[in-house]
Simulated assay, not measured.
Amino acid sequence: MLDLLVVAAASGLAGFVDAIVGGGGLVLVPALFATYPGAPPASLMGTNKGGAIWGTAWAARQFARRVSLNWRGLMPAVAMALLGSWAGAWTLTQVSADGLRKALPLVLLAILAYTLARKDLGREHAPRLAAARESLAAGVIGLCIGFYDGFFGPGTGSFFVFLFVRILGYDFLHASAAAKLLNTATNGAALLLFAWKGHVWWQVAAVLAVTNVAGSLLGTRMALRHGAGFVRGVFILVVSALILKTGYDAFLR
């Protein structure tokens, strides 16, 4: 029971962070591995997806009710994200992700440096592409980051947010809202694969889902209340934490 309370609290915090800017896995996945050190990694990852998908989906619903989104452009991207995630998860069963693990902190460091250097990045919502080109660009983003999420995963939501800001011209609030839609699809695809392979502890996942939704509700309300500047600040904090965590895992552990 104590173990369950610990991971439930971590799931609530993960839902809060993930609802604002992504990166909830930075909180929940290490908590699961620390609490259940003898468990198969696949079961812990599957249980993580089983809990986290509900908070992401809830955040997507809340954002969709309050933030104007280009639904015609984003729905094909959602389908591409689902396809990419499934392909990434399958690829993981065939090859090792060690090379990507070492490259990830360097990529995140570049993203952080770029965001800090561009003080105005993501503060104003000014989509720069025509409808057809925006749909195509969003689809490519969904496919590529979806593949990454299925294959490896850490920071998926943050990658979605950054690319929507940098490539499509969204502000951080709209980018976060769009990211939730695509991240729900990638989580769903990965969850289906883990469930198919029998790698989900459904009783634990159900508890994680409840606290993840609660954290997501609070995070979404704060993001909507404080706007793009607040989301940008949280994005910088989360990416900084991801750099430290992934750098430690890749080079020091």
Rank of each mutant, 00 (worst) to 15 (best):
S11Q: 01
L13T: 12
V17S: 11
D18E: 15
A19L: 01
G24M: 02
G25N: 03
A31S: 06
T35F: 10
T35G: 04
Y36R: 02
Y36A: 01
A39T: 14
A39E: 14
L44F: 15
T47E: 02
G55R: 03
G55I: 00
R65A: 06
R65S: 03
L74S: 04
M75K: 07
A77C: 04
S85F: 10
A89F: 11
A89Q: 08
L92D: 05
Q94N: 02
V95H: 10
S96I: 02
A97Y: 14
A97Q: 15
A97T: 05
D98E: 15
G99C: 05
R101S: 06
L108I: 00
A110R: 09
L112N: 10
R118C: 07
E124Y: 08
A131T: 10
E134D: 04
V140C: 09
F151N: 01
F159P: 01
F159S: 00
G169L: 02
K180N: 04
G188R: 08
L191Q: 04
F194H: 09
L208V: 07
T211A: 03
G219C: 00
R221S: 04
R225K: 14
A228Y: 00
F230D: 13
F230S: 11
I236Q: 08
L237E: 05
A241L: 13
A241G: 13
K245Y: 13
G247L: 01
